[in-house]
Nucleic acid binder design. Structure first.
Lengths: 243, 243
DNA sequence: CATACATACATGTATATACTTTTACCCGAG
DNA sequence: CTCGGGTAAAAGTATATACATGTATGTATG
């Protein structure tokens, strides 16, 4: 018999917290299956409707998946929002039925510029990882991808082979994203970008600046340049979907 | 005593549909206050818990706001997601402390092209509203805004003065958006765009194509062109917020 | 051995009921 | 007129109960 904390919040919130905590600490490991509603009722001493509400809301929030007649399971790592999703260019290309290939131009450890250190919200100048990758769709370069990565959150970033694993997949697997910032703009290609993407200098490019946080710490800063004529970002979103 | 439709969907979904429909058709007008839970129980013939669930989920989805002890109200026009929010350029400009002004270039009724009718998912060629507006930030043109509007959902669109009310605000107020599609790309300015935005022909522009649905019906199609050097779309998003 | 049925168990929905908490409003005392 | 308390009304939470629905599994039957 487990006793829930004696706080002011409603019971179903305590149950949600209890479940989230146990997900975080890796209880219910391996098959990631949670106790059934009735088992939770027995162990927590609350009614089934209360447990059900907690589970339903956690499911709506994307933490759990449920299957009638089978059980409740911890949801697989989440692709999150449309704006995050558009960032996984490798998956996007494959989904269109095309072939994706990466070419790693740079993978190094650098001392950040003052401006970059500021973006990372660093007090001191600690070194960070830096990568530049070109992504190809059927041998046509479509995206130039520059990333700066916080080594305290993602060690060994500089030892990966990003021609095999996409940087996005690696980062997603290594650290949970709790917050994302995007800035999207249109810029003309500079000489280097034009060369890597095989387009004319001054041609229109979509430029996506992205920062991700893990808790209060900036995890990554990415600068993605899309060859304008060959690419667009798409998303479809249903505000009222809730389950 | 109202009878809900005899479909397969669960009762609380029918109640949600009933409420959404009455919001859309402007029932409960003026003070935008809904009947109390007990009144809905009486008029729909379902239990209070079922009504409560419907109202709670519509509240979570942003359609309603509720105040304990007072009542349930239709939520003010919704800023919703980051991607939708970026579209309200008037609010954005004002928030930056700058002055916003609109200039209406075109406001007319047209017979859509075949392609446009297809985008609207129209079987027949019914006429639609068409507007072109330039949005200024401190007398500097920043966005060219072209919209196509479904007259069956938003009548009188052609009779508004969009130099006073922003098109976005008017549309948001008139119909609830249940789904949104965005396509973002970077394009060079053509002659007409360049003239209206006061930039060079061929200069980089951010181009945002947007379709909104109300239920199964396409409500609006928008083509927004941002002067690239003067504008960028920004957003910040917390995936893990869940209530 | 394979198929079909029965069964157990899980989640999903619906109801009736009770109590709590918050808010608005009325009305009386000062 | 003002302050204050009482009261009614509304949403919020919690429970017990019942039945519906989907899934897996074991068993009997051909």
């Amino acid at each position: 018999m487990i006793t829930l904390p004696d706080t002011a919040s409603p019971l179903y919130e305590k149950v949600k917290d209890y479940i989230l905590t146990n997900i975080g600490t890796g209880q219910w490991g391996k098959d990631r299956k949670l106790p059934s509603e009735n088992e939770l009722v027995a162990s927590l001493g609350v009614s089934r409707m209360t447990v059900h509400r907690a589970l339903r809301e956690l499911t709506a929030a994307g933490f759990l998946t449920r299957l009638q007649g089978v059980g409740t399971f911890i949801a697989p790592p989440r692709p999150q929002s449309t704006l995050i999703e558009i960032n996984n260019i490798a998956a996007e290309i494959v989904e269109r039925g095309n072939r994706h290939r990466s070419e790693v131009l740079v993978l190094e450890t650098i001392t950040p510029t003052k401006e970059l250190a500021l973006s990372f919200e660093f007090a001191k100048r600690v070194s960070i990882y830096h990568s530049v990758v070109v992504n190809f769709e059927n041998d046509l370069p479509v995206q130039l991808e520059e990333r700066f990565v916080n080594p305290s959150l993602i060690p060994d970033y500089d030892k990966q082979d990003f021609s095999k694993t996409a940087t996005y997949d690696y980062l997603m697997q290594k650290t949970p994203v709790t917050e994302v910032e995007h800035i999207i703009s249109a810029i003309p290609a500079d000489a280097e970008t034009a060369r890597h993407l095989g387009i004319d200098v001054g041609a229109c490019c979509l430029f996506l600046h992205r920062r991700t946080w893990t808790g209060a710490v900036v995890a990554t800063i990415s600068k993605l340049t899309y060859a304008g004529s060959r690419y667009s970002l798409g998303s479809r979103y249903s505000p009222s979907k809730h389950s």
